[in-house]
Write a protein that binds this DNA or RNA. Sequence first.
RNA 1: GGCCCGUUCGUCUAGGGGUUAGGACGCAGGAUUUUCAUUCCUGUAACACGGGUUCGAUUCCCGUACGGGCUACCA
Length: 506
Amino acid sequence: MENIRVRFAPSPTGALHIGGIRTALYNYLLAKKFGGTFILRIEDTDQTRFVPGAEAYIIESLRWAGIVPVEGPGFGGEYGPYRQSDRKAIYLDYAMQLIESGQGYYAFDTPEELDAARSADENFKYDSKTRLSLKNSLSLNPEEVTRRLAAGEAYVIRLKVPENETVLIQDLVRGEVSFQSNELDDKVMLKGDGMPTYHLANVLDDRLMKITHVIRGEEWLPSTAHHVLLYRAFGWEAEMPRFAHLPLILKPNGQGKLSKRDGSRLGIPVFPISWVSETPEDSFVGFREFGFDPHAMVNFMAFMGWNPGTEQEIFSMDELAAAFSVEKIGKSGARFDFDKAKWFNQQYIMASSNEELAQTIRPLIEAQGHQPTEAFLCSFAGMMKERVVLFPDFWTNGAYFFEDFTVFDEATIRKKWKTDGSRAIFTPLVDQLDQLTDYNAGAVQACVEAFTSVAGLKFGDVLPILRVGLTGTMKGPAVFDMMALLGKAECRRRLERAFDLFDKVY
RNA sequence: GGCCCGUUCGUCUAGGGGUUAGGACGCAGGAUUUUCAUUCCUGUAACACGGGUUCGAUUCCCGUACGGGCUACCA
């Protein structure tokens, strides 16, 4: 394989949703697999849509996901600058080449005139059939063009799309796709403000940055015809990058592609990390803040539209890179399945070490006002990790490890606790537990078993009392493990408090 | 409207001219478990439709339907 160079080229117009992350991921995986170079390029040619902070958001999102560029703004590289607004002169230069070679032309039509043309004919297209009746250097005489230019009149440079040509695209995902040039319009290459459009800048930068593979969303497939025409115009068609157009990510339910609003509408994340804007409607919660492990998100995203062809589903980034191939990318849109995303996260949490989990959840626990020791937190994580799906579940499902419960499972107590006698039965157990010198799970269990048989009770009569007495709930880790972690004094305190509470149930 | 792309269980998908059409999520049931969860087992459910080509089509071709994308001096 040649020296692969791929790029992720987002526009800094706001938060980048999960589809963008997947595009970046596939580019990254291809580069990683073949020892190539993954480049980040910021396509900020639309000054009206520029959003401050968006570039930093994109970089942080990628970093969180473990997709780190080798070249890009702030990352170095020999093909910079990597922000298109810093490359303005380059685009002008090449746009002029288009004019000189007769493959581009100046157009003086104002946006208002074009709008008028469109409202007069809804099928209006600026193309080979209409361009001679519009105001441009093809229809106007040379003196008039020179005069307008000299007078500083606003103009754009358009691509002169040739007639009667067939544009064939060999797409790595879709195979051969063909377009008739007569269907294509004369796209603007250089805008009135001197900035290039996406099409010009993209083609030029891919060429100048020696990009070998263009992996991008399917929404770009139609304009790829124009891009090929541009490569042709510059004489680069033989060395064009290879194209791969990715299937879109669809809404979880209903129809259409996934949109920003779907997240807040359905209460699920569709962004990698949170985006905070002045208005709540434009602020979004991310996978990170939802409590996802970035590896789980990446694993999940990798499978939206790609599949290794084996039955393995859990992949590290390295394994993903090793297994990845553009040929195995699917063709049809993939519906965003949040249940599957959660399943991946659960798998990752269960596979994480207690130490890793402790580190991740410490801020969540501390935010609740508790400063557990590292040892305590690790044991806690170990006991809870098979019982959570998202990181915040550690707190929601295990708060009783850190503080007294306020509500408890009344149904169990009504069934197992008798106000006219249970207290007398269980107080000796508390006392016996207090006699233990080594308060470990085994010793506690032995003590409880001995008590149970002497008292003529069944395990099922004693365990629920202990469990609910200690934690308030019937759900949770093994009782004796929890007792060992909580310690003798704390268990005694909790049980006495609980017994008082239970007596008040009726 | 025009151009382009797509269509296998509810969802993500494997597969591919002759298969009991496989896996995963979800859901349902069961086993294990002091609870919950984990784990294991079982079940549920799919080749959009119509024509060809063929001995045989879910697989190849053509239509139709449906879905999606693009159709800006936005990317």
